[in-house]
Design a protein around this nucleic acid. Structure first.
Lengths: 158, 158
DNA sequence: TATTGTTATACTCTATAACTATA
DNA sequence: TATAGTTATAGAGTATAACAATA
């Protein structure tokens, strides 16, 4: 019976046997992510933000003048799906669209003061719920996790 | 200007500034996961499997006689969403449903020989694409990553 | 001709409520 | 009364094609 070297067969807490799935990084990553995502979603919802709108607001705040194509590329999402998100942020007065004089196809996006403040507050609260979830890791484990995740992501240019 | 201790402000490869989002574990985890997931999806599709059907087939293979409620719980999904997946695996002759004599509400699920063989082959191929993605990590980093992800997941019982 | 923002649309995934048959 | 499996459905999230305005 083939056993994996790094994680021998074991019964999960639930009592369900799992020789294969649990040794796949994708599976483990999704399940770990699912510990964090609903918590982040919940606190962001208290400010009427979705994860995607918080992400947009955050990138716009840090990159005043960014245009929608660039934002879509930064967040790895489709331009078309960005439109409604940007519409809503603008309607709520959190960001502003300004036509770029030198290229009138493009809209320069900037966060308003309200937008920047909301971003800062929301980021703090997301950080707090992450701290709670990740509380079982010490600072070193956490830093190492972040570094490894960044390296996996950087692999994209292959 | 507040800077994070563990990851100072920096320009991403794309040239987009990112003071906040990039320091959130949830964001990093999602982006790292997105390096693996499409690759896994692609190789599984070659065997006409989705990630969820592979996961079901895998758990059923390792747990002959498991019933749908237990499977749903193990994979943290809704019973109702499991039905079509199980239907398809059964139609393809990869698993069998057998009424449990002692409780005729329940179906005992078992993988057929074909199902077990497909699972083993698919698992190997998923493992290969994961190895390719994660090739930038040495064995120790990889083992540590898996261990940390497991600890985050285990936090569920809080 | 190519690109930006936009609209419409479709497809997947997930969540909920309600039904049936059994217990 | 509660549970297992099922159905239908609605809501997200995501992907694609096509269009108008502009380069």
């Amino acid at each position: 019976m083939p056993k994996s070297e790094e994680n021998p067969d074991h019964r999960e807490a639930s009592g369900v046997e799992d020789t294969v799935l649990g040794n796949l990084i994708g599976y483990r990553m999704k399940r770990a992510y699912m510990q964090i995502q609903p918590e982040a979603q919940r606190v962001l919802a208290e400010d009427d933000l979705r994860v995607v709108s918080f992400s947009c607001l955050s990138i716009i705040t840090d990159n005043p003048g960014i245009v929608q194509s660039e934002l879509a590329e930064a967040l790895q999402m489709e331009r078309s799906n960005l439109v409604v998100v940007i519409d809503e942020l603008e309607d709520r007065g959190l960001i502003a669209r300004k036509k770029v004089p030198t290229d009138r196809r493009r809209y320069a996006l900037t966060a308003t003061l309200r937008g920047r403040r909301l971003r800062d507050r929301a980021a703090l609260r997301v950080r707090q719920v992450e701290d709670a979830v990740v509380g079982c890791l010490d600072a070193e484990d956490r830093a190492r996790l972040m570094a490894v995740l960044e390296r996996l992501e950087a692999r994209r240019a292959r």
